[in-house]
Design a protein around this nucleic acid. Sequence first.
DNA 1: TATTAACCGAGACGGTACGTCGGGTCTTGTA
DNA 2: TACAAGACCCGACGTACCGTCTCGGTTAATA
Lengths: 213, 213, 213, 213
Amino acid sequence: MSPPARRTGRPRSAEADRAILGATRAALVELGWSKLTMGDVAARAGVAKTTLYRRWTNKSELVVDAVAALLDEQLELPDLGSLRADVEETVLRFAALLARPEARTSLMAVVAEATRDEALRERIRTAIVDRQKRLVLLGRERAQARGELLREADLAAAARNADLIFDVIAGAVMHRTLVSADAVDAPWARDFAELLLCGLPAPAPAQKPAGSV
Amino acid sequence: MSPPARRTGRPRSAEADRAILGATRAALVELGWSKLTMGDVAARAGVAKTTLYRRWTNKSELVVDAVAALLDEQLELPDLGSLRADVEETVLRFAALLARPEARTSLMAVVAEATRDEALRERIRTAIVDRQKRLVLLGRERAQARGELLREADLAAAARNADLIFDVIAGAVMHRTLVSADAVDAPWARDFAELLLCGLPAPAPAQKPAGSV
Amino acid sequence: MSPPARRTGRPRSAEADRAILGATRAALVELGWSKLTMGDVAARAGVAKTTLYRRWTNKSELVVDAVAALLDEQLELPDLGSLRADVEETVLRFAALLARPEARTSLMAVVAEATRDEALRERIRTAIVDRQKRLVLLGRERAQARGELLREADLAAAARNADLIFDVIAGAVMHRTLVSADAVDAPWARDFAELLLCGLPAPAPAQKPAGSV
Amino acid sequence: MSPPARRTGRPRSAEADRAILGATRAALVELGWSKLTMGDVAARAGVAKTTLYRRWTNKSELVVDAVAALLDEQLELPDLGSLRADVEETVLRFAALLARPEARTSLMAVVAEATRDEALRERIRTAIVDRQKRLVLLGRERAQARGELLREADLAAAARNADLIFDVIAGAVMHRTLVSADAVDAPWARDFAELLLCGLPAPAPAQKPAGSV
DNA sequence: TATTAACCGAGACGGTACGTCGGGTCTTGTA
DNA sequence: TACAAGACCCGACGTACCGTCTCGGTTAATA
């Protein structure tokens, strides 16, 4: 069932594979998705266009693969002694990643493409989202150990909550960077952490009776 | 201030503006971003291609404006009597909009394109971001009137805060929808509103004594 | 029958007429027929396009009028004492005229346009051809007076002959200049006059028995 | 000498060359120069527009070649036994060609365009002028073989002379047809051949006693 | 060692859309 | 009315990229 390993004929050049992916990543950084052309990638890789199409059926497929390789870098969770400090630092690290043009461009390109490609969406979910979610889980673990966070009884609720926090953090940073086109700097990170930990500033401390969720 | 110029010559047809934006939205729905062509939009609008390019330099710019109009008409702030309910409802409305393929696709395409196009970024900011921020401002106004929110003394801080809240709400919804590829439904909206209003659940109400923040 | 002289309303600006024709000639010289645009002419004349179209229905009509004015300069027949010398000098003068880009360009443009415009053809015939034919008639007159040329008995034949000579001289110069793209210089003029006066070089003097022609 | 290059890559389709030139001629006949469009030619030829532009940079260049092919196929030198008869027949054949509107129109259009386009002038020279000059060379060869013409000693002079004769014949016919707008018919051809072979009718330098005619 | 099938580069091909340009018309406000 | 300005419709222009298709030539496994 698995590919019976083509046997006859000249085998494909592994060199070419490497060169093509490298050239694609370079072109992505310089030009972005929409101005990247197959002809240009081929030229950069010192390869014929035919060679590209022998391996990938599409511009999309090629670029997605190139991006996937690019995004294998991972964020690491800091441990600064308090939940608030850890959140701020994580936000700043993620923003630093998004500040790099190749990351920003290719991430968005792949997300945009995914808006009309179910398979790609699934691929993003497993390759990126699920992998980064561990940061939230780990951070919560630590905070609970420190006594900074309530330990949730309901397991399902706990999972749902982790998902929510992940979307809030990642979404806020991405939205500010890519849509609002504003900088994510230390003051913003501080304000964001404050909001995340304490919520909107209610007028009277007495308004929140004891025992509320 | 801005429109004192343009006195001589035949004025631009407002009719054409409407027809073009309408045709663009219709084409987006039917074809999606990538298959939408300027020529087709012109034909649908009963207008010459030149007339499009006299108003928008690009396919991107045109689509940004069409999307902005779409958001304008679709997003209204509800008034359900409490900040919490208003937030939930707004989140759900925004999610409903993103569930429509033409909105999702074109919004993301435009954002992706903007990652390497400063002018487009600026246009998104003025045409979409600044315009939708009114929802946050209006919502805060009402909540303060109801006594649900502290009235901020510092004006600059108030503005910064509105920006932050906007990015958090819009970012969370977009990220969950487009990146995490999960549904934004009523339970999620409830959890999100809870988090936004109250922050992460601290273990004891008395735990935050002196010296905080 | 003659134009009843419009009376009401603002009269047309004679200034504008002059400016337009001048601008057209200037544009013809610089750009040639095909790259001359109505918009450019209007701009040079400091006039709106509407004003052009109020006076001429077409680009063609406008340019033809401009060319006609240009060609009102005339060639003068020299009198150098012999038919041969007069022919050579006339050829060189005509060539000098064709060497001027505005003359060359606009003349050809108008002729090309005439290939599909009967009315224009007629206009060229009366405005240019018939007017220049006088040179042939005058030259023949003088040569006959000097005894260099046979005086034709048949009047119709004489007229036909003048037409022929005109086409041969003008045609040869124009063809060499415009089609063959070679220079019409003194040696060529000499060779041409020799050919015109004596015909192709026959091998034996005895071949043309008396009384021929 | 000229085609040693071009070794790699897919070779250009000779089929396409034929189809394009054929389609161009057909379009010229139906539409004339100014209404002929590259897109239409491509469609008729069953070829992409790109393929046209890969071979010809311009509408003008393409039409020049199409016209050249037209002349090639239409103009053959007759052999009627005498130089005089051959000249007459050639003149009539050329005139018949110029009577066809597509030939007349496109030839003139191309020449007019060339008055301000050096590259086009060069192309006309090589594609049309040099190619048709063969008729003069061949005709002279035959006439000399028959003993009707002097064999020139000086080679350079012979070449100059062929150029001259070509310009005289082609120029006279074109001028009469296109500028004078008169018919080139059998009588005119006879008069022209007489003039070309014998020159202007001199009164016989002393040979002919006074009072002749 | 010779065969041979699949590879490779180059580049032409049919398409489709792009953004621009010019022709000729129409619509303003002003003189 | 004419005029300057400039928007309008139309249609062709020449370009760019897509993904496919020959070409002539190379290269490793097989026979």
